[in-house]
Design a protein around this nucleic acid. Structure first.
Lengths: 152, 152
DNA sequence: ACATTCCTGACGGCTTTAGTCAACTTTAAC
DNA sequence: GTTAAAGTTGACTAAAGCCGTCAGGAATGT
């Protein structure tokens, strides 16, 4: 389980999609504006999300992205896994050859931790996040915002 | 809570110290040989561990490093915190200004996760790790090893 | 046709990681 | 008191990953 800002961007973007789940396709430009993420970077992230089967895309005018399944069926862990193709927290990638030909001293520790983190994030769906008061509060503020100018 | 290979190196090295807790000072050269970590890199890590008060150093011949307190008093979380001076998993460093002037949508999520990871790692001491059969098994193999040549 | 939007690949700056090298200080042992 | 073992510090490099930009292309509704 690798946790970087990349994964955080992805979860934020997916949460934005979840907030507009029943309102038709959402363009990346909208997400970029609302969440303050560069459009081109979003394009990269969504390419992976699409390959991971988490979102559906609609081309052409009026197009955009939609969640492939309802928010209650998508967990945070799935999003992060789709973004970071390498998932293991261990040094050896599960090969247990971290140290020469043998497992390193702390191999088991990182494996345990990895499982814990995964379980935590797997227990949280987008629907869970949407229902949080804090999220709704921030979201409503974003709706009423003056659109900023978007580069490219 | 930032989890990188850097932190893993540090925990592995500290575990090595814990395994030799009652046997006098341990040189970095020994750790480098046993754990397959570059000596110069260990020097950097132990400078931080020393500043963090986790280890004591003894200079001169016969010198080396010792745990500053018994293994049962040192948690994995402390080690990682000492190594990565920045601890927060959130984008804004607790400032809650992740997105312009307001907290980003997922601020709370990362804060929660951060706490979870910290609690997990704070619940594991070096003594816990030492008592694990797997660790002892790997450790005993390392003791009987032919010393490899060390560069510089 | 045309504008909109997704899609793809290449590229560059930046930070972090991992490791190297060199010089220095302390101190035990001879 | 010399010497050698060890820690201490700082500068440096190479590689990787992150973040973002740019340029073009493909699909598609109007």
């Amino acid at each position: 389980m690798k946790l970087t800002t990349k994964g955080r961007y992805a979860v934020t973007a997916m949460l934005d999609l979840a907030l507009h789940f029943d309102k038709g396709a959402v363009t990346l430009a909208d997400i970029a504006r609302r969440q303050g993420i560069s459009l081109s970077y979003l394009e990269q992230l969504f390419a992976k999300l699409r390959r991971g089967g988490l979102v559906d895309s609609v081309r052409g005018p009026g197009g955009g992205y939609n969640l492939a399944v309802p928010p209650s069926k998508i967990t945070v862990a799935e999003i992060i896994v789709a973004i970071n193709e390498n998932i293991d927290a261990t040094r050896c990638g599960g090969e247990k050859n971290c140290h020469g030909d043998q497992a390193c001293l702390t191999h088991q520790l990182w494996e345990d931790l990895s499982v814990r983190i995964y379980e935590f994030l797997h227990g949280i769906t987008l629907a869970d996040l949407v229902s949080k008061p804090q999220v709704q509060q921030v979201a409503s503020r974003q709706e009423s915002r003056v659109p900023a100018t978007i580069t490219r």
